[in-house]
Amino acid sequence: MELEDKNRIVITVLGEDKVGIVAKMTGVLAKYEANILDISQTLLQDLFAMIMLVDISKTKISFEELKEELQSAGQELQMKVMAQHEDVFRYMHRI
């Protein structure tokens, strides 16, 4: 199993649906030049879930810093924000 060098992360925003979630999150990503490759919305049990695949190879700040920025933006909307390297999902679910 080789680890990927690509710098793509998956951002999951979880909470009660409300106005402005996408705008808020994409605003943070745009500010630091993180490129959204894909975006989708679904439900996890009763919670609203927004999932984004984001390329951070040209981002001006580190992954850790970006994660913190996203999480504090999420807090303002009372949403939980998780960010993980895409490898997690590729390796956990696929052979």
Binding site: V10, T12, L14, L37, I51, R90
Partner: peptide, 17 residues
């Protein structure tokens, strides 16, 4: 989507719940 939302949510559920 490049990544399956169900797979992502399954992982999130495992960790968070």
């Amino acid at each position: 989507m490049l990544i399956n939302p169900d797979e992502i949510l399954e992982t999130i559920k495992m960790i968070e719940m």
